[in-house]
Write a protein that binds this DNA or RNA. Structure first.
Lengths: 130, 130
DNA sequence: AGCAAAATGAAAACCATTGTCAAAACGGCC
DNA sequence: GGCCGTTTTGACAATGGTTTTCATTTTGCT
């Protein structure tokens, strides 16, 4: 437990299938007995994010949520708006499109964010049943 | 000036070419002599957003920014990360791609968000000069 | 061990946003 | 015009996620 708690935070994220908030991660770690401070969780998340090991995005109410990337390369997410299940998707076409759009208007250092939301099959079932 | 200050807020947005934060809008209105409270600006923005008259999105640091939609139809934005200048862009290919990605994984009611960021020509100049 | 640099965490500071509530503006109605 | 109930407003307080601060602990190195 001596080597940076960053590892611990990374593990929690690795074990999750959907986006988690910092507060959420902190709560889970404390609940499972880990001795860690909220500050450190934030710092670990920021470091992991800087290192490109995890994704960050903002919920509609401005909370930051994090998720371990399964792949190192650039990719996007297809997120179930009901259960939060996430599928990583590659979109070479989108990359090219974004790049082209930027160029067309003379913009440089073009980056982009793309998130696709929908209702996953199982949630669609539930909705029909319930 | 009696009819809801919502109109005033709408005007400020209409006169802007890029995304504005609530605080920003409030500051401008006060600076130009308008008698309005921050609370009311927030309320007006929320109402306009609910009415679908303006776009809302979150900056990377979680601040909400608003912009009057020039077009009613679905579109995306190319935003200068330095000065905030915004260009509305259509992306039929992206729409199709998002739809296809959703279908491929069995997701229904698929929606998506796409934002492209970059450095606009004039800011690139400044950066080079300064 | 011994010591400087990095990591940690409790508590305070920040700050956009939201809630509260009393005062002001509005809209009928006599 | 004057009255009264409803809506809007806005100063201020409260919220809550995130960041800073700073003193303490741990780590890395010799």
């Amino acid at each position: 437990m001596t080597t940076s708690r960053r590892q611990a935070v990374r593990k929690v994220l690795a074990a999750s299938t959907s986006f988690r908030s910092a507060q959420d991660i902190y709560a889970e770690m404390r609940a499972s007995g880990a001795k860690i401070g909220l500050t450190t969780v934030y710092r670990a998340l920021q470091a992991l994010s800087d290192a490109g090991e995890i994704d960050v995005l903002r919920t509609d109410d401005g909370e930051a949520v994090y998720r371990a990337c399964a792949t190192v390369s650039h990719h996007h997410h297809l997120v179930c708006r009901r259960c939060g299940k996430t599928v990583e998707v590659a979109g070479p076409d989108v990359e090219r499109w974004a790049e082209a759009v930027g160029k067309e208007h003379g913009f440089t250092d073009v980056t982009h964010t793309v998130e696709v939301f929908g209702t996953c099959p199982s949630c669609a079932e539930e909705a029909k049943a319930g």
